[in-house]
Design a protein around this nucleic acid. Structure first.
Lengths: 201, 201
DNA sequence: ACCTGAACACCGTTCAAGT
DNA sequence: ACCTGAACACCGTTCAAGT
């Protein structure tokens, strides 16, 4: 398929695996299929990696390094703390780029390696959100609970968007109304009983 | 492993598949492995089912028939509408029986067949929840949004419990506090601005 | 150092042959 | 009607041999 390359690097393999991952989940990270795409034989993979697990592990590590902070970076760009939460949920409704791999990983949580990667990323993001809630005036003990709830809504939404796209609000109008509802819920523990209908649409 | 049985039925195969599903997800529904467990050869499976996909499909259909209404039945048993929501979220925190298969399915959402089953079940449950919110006095158009948010929190929680058990509130004390927060959020659109700390613990 | 090519194990699938 | 046993394709893995 692809033009045969004289030599392949580790990065060539993880790049191909990352692409396969977003298209077909963990199952698509198959050495023989990747070798065909890369114009090489399976033996090449086994030079760079001891086995398929190591290739998958390296691929997930690369995803963590390149995408873990993506959500946080997106939020940091906005000054208004309350609007950040809205952005977080909106990012799922709007299917931003980079989320394809994340959705594929959530669907492949069967795999222990995937599970471990998701665990680390979740913990990092929940800690960030808890910090946000504390800045909004929520007591530390409660802040973590609000963070977990918010991140659960995010994850559940990603899951719904993938498995039951029809059940999820679609179109700009419905999305805005849904976000208003979500913000009213998630900020119910704050002084601000709901965020403005957003100046970021 | 298992004592060899003279003859196997379709139900024997789907029962074995259901057990394998809850232990190892879709990947564990492997005809050769199931045959060994059942004390038969692979050919037996191909008598009852045209292929592995048909076996998986029948297994998922059985799960839908036996477990789809489980959550709803659980909730119907309780008269107080607001407490039902609390029960829904609590059921994830407490890892009730039957949820093992559901969690495995969420993790195997890679598979188109699994996705389809989850879609049908989600839609059914969201409709039920929307009805609940309408009974709580929420306008129909809003009720669906609150239902989607609630179910997202449920799904996201299931995902977190599976991938990042450490991030989720554990222990009766933390679980209760977390539920109080969740109820405050999910009932923020209702007259009852939060449910009583529950008489069902 | 990096890769090919052939080999083997495992699982999905087929099918002729058995009871 | 229901199952076995042998066969083949596909993918993970190994390794001797090539450049």
């Amino acid at each position: 398929m692809a033009k045969p390359r004289a030599r392949l690097s580790r990065d060539d393999w993880t790049a191909a695996a990352l692409a396969a991952l977003s298209e077909g989940g963990t199952a698509a990270v198959a050495i023989e299929q990747l070798a065909t795409r890369l114009g090489a034989t399976k033996g090449s993979a086994y030079w760079h990696f001891p086995n398929r697990e190591a290739l998958l592990r390296a691929t997930l590590a690369r995803w963590e390094a390149e995408y873990t902070e993506a959500v946080i970076d997106l939020l940091e760009a906005e000054a208004d703390l309350a609007v950040r939460l809205r952005r977080l949920l909106a990012s799922v409704l709007e299917h931003r780029q980079g989320s394809a791999i994340e959705l594929a990983l959530l669907a492949s949580a069967d795999d222990p390696l995937v599970r471990a990667a998701l665990r680390r990323v979740s913990e990092r993001r929940i800690n960030y959100l808890a910090e946000q809630f504390r800045e909004l005036g929520v007591a530390p003990a409660q802040a973590r609970h609000w963070a977990v709830l918010s991140y659960s809504a995010y994850l559940g939404h990603a899951q719904l968007a993938r498995t039951a796209a029809g059940s999820v609000p679609s179109g700009p109008r419905a999305a805005r109304e849904y976000l208003d509802v979500a913000m009213q819920a998630l900020l119910a523990g704050t002084d601000r009983h709901h965020a403005e209908p957003a100046a970021d649409a």
